[in-house]
C-alpha cells in the first residue's frame, strides 16, 4: 500500500510569539512537526505495520530549507521517503497556493491513502489538506478519530454534535487526523540513525510543473496582532458570608455569567 502523509512545520506550542514588522518573528523559535500531523504520521505507520512488506510511506511538505528538519524527524519515526516543495515564490503562500504546490508534487507519487493533520496549530485554517484532496479529485473526511481499511474502502469515525458518525469512503482518499486518533511514537535511536540515509527529494515549482504565477497568493494579510493580555483577577476581601453578595453581583452584572 502506498501511503502519503502531508506535514507542516510549525512553532513549538510552548514558543513565545513575538511580532515584529507586522509578522510573527521566527528568530530563535524551536520548530516542530505540527502536533496534528504527528497523529497523521502515527496512523500511517500503524497502517504500514499492519500491511506488512511492500507498504511505503511518503511524507510531503512545502516550506523553506529548514522544513527538512521536520521531514527528517518523520523519516526517523519510520516514514520511508520524503518530498520538500521549496521555492522562493512560495514565501507568503496562502492555503490555496500551498495546496496547489503540494498537489502538483503528488502528481508523480502513487498513493492509496493520504493522511494529514486536521489543522496546523500556527494559523489553524484547516484548509490545505482538503484543498489538496479537491485538486487531486479524491474524497476527504476531516477530523477522524478512528480508522480501519480493507484496502479498498476506509471506515472512519468522526465526532459530531452529540455523538459519532461512521463514514465509509472509497480509496484513495484524504483523511485528516483529530487529537485522540492515536498516541504518536517518538523516533528511537535506530530510527534517527536510519533517517539520514532515507530519500529527501527537494523540488522547486518548476520541478512539480508549476510557475510562480500559478501559485500567487489569493489573499493578503493586513496585520497580525497578539491576543489581549489577560487582566488580573479581582480578589474580594473579607469573610465568605460577607463577600458572597458582592461576588454574585459581579458575576451577574459585570461578568454576566449568571
Amino acid at each position: 500500500m502506498n501511503i502519503v502523509v502531508l506535514l507542516k512545520q510549525t512553532f513549538d506550542t510552548e514558543a513565545k510569539i513575538v511580532i515584529s514588522g507586522g509578522k510573527v518573528d521566527p528568530t530563535g523559535v524551536t520548530l516542530v512537526i505540527n502536533p496534528y500531523d504527528e497523529f497523521a504520521i502515527e496512523e500511517a505507520l500503524t497502517l504500514k505495520e499492519a500491511q506488512g512488506e511492500g507498504s511505503e510511506i511518503t511524507v510531503v511538505t512545502a516550506g523553506g530549507d529548514v522544513a527538512e528538519q521536520a521531514l527528517r524527524t518523520a523519516l526517523a519515526m519510520g516514514c520511508d521517503k520524503s518530498i520538500l516543495v521549496s521555492d522562493e515564490a512560495l514565501d507568503g503562500a496562502d492555503e490555496w497556493a500551498a495546496a496547489e504546490a503540494v498537489a502538483a508534487a503528488l502528481k508523480d507519487v502513487e498513493y492509496d491513502i493520504i493522511f494529514a493533520g486536521r489543522i496546523a496549530v500556527d494559523d489553524a485554517s484547516g484548509q490545505v489538506a482538503v484543498r489538496v484532496a479537491e485538486a487531486l479529485g479524491i474524497p476527504s473526511v476531516s477530523s477522524i478519530l478512528k480508522f480501519e481499511t480493507d484496502g479498498t474502502v476506509a471506515t472512519v469515525t468522526r465526532e459530531i454534535d452529540g455523538g459519532n458518525e461512521i463514514i465509509e469512503v472509497p480509496l484513495p482518499a484524504m483523511l485528516t487526523a483529530q487529537k485522540g486518533l492515536n498516541e504518536p511514537r517518538l523516533p528511537n535511536m535506530m530510527g534517527i540513525m536510519k533517517a539520514k540515509s532515507k530519500p529527501l527529494e527537494k523540488k522547486d515549482l518548476a520541478a512539480v510543473g508549476k510557475a510562480a504565477g500559478d501559485v500567487a497568493a489569493k489573499f493578503v494579510i493586513d496585520s497580525v496582532s497578539l491576543p489581549t493580555p489577560r487582566e488580573a483577577g479581582t480578589i474580594l476581601k473579607g469573610e465568605a458570608a460577607e463577600t458572597a453578595p458582592e461576588l454574585v453581583r459581579l458575576l451577574h452584572e459585570e461578568a454576566k455569567v449568571i
Binding site: 516542530v32 528538519q69 527528517r72 524527524t73 526517523a76 517518538l186 523516533p187 528511537n188 535511536m189 534517527i192 540513525m193 533517517a195 539520514k196
Partner: peptide, 17 residues
C-alpha cells in the same frame, strides 16, 4: 548535527512523556 538535533528533541520528549 541533524542527528544530534533529533536526539535532543527525542530525549526531551521522552523525559517529558
Amino acid at each position: 548535527t541533524e542527528e544530534q538535533r533529533m536526539v535532543q528533541e527525542m530525549a526531551k520528549s521522552f523525559a517529558e512523556k
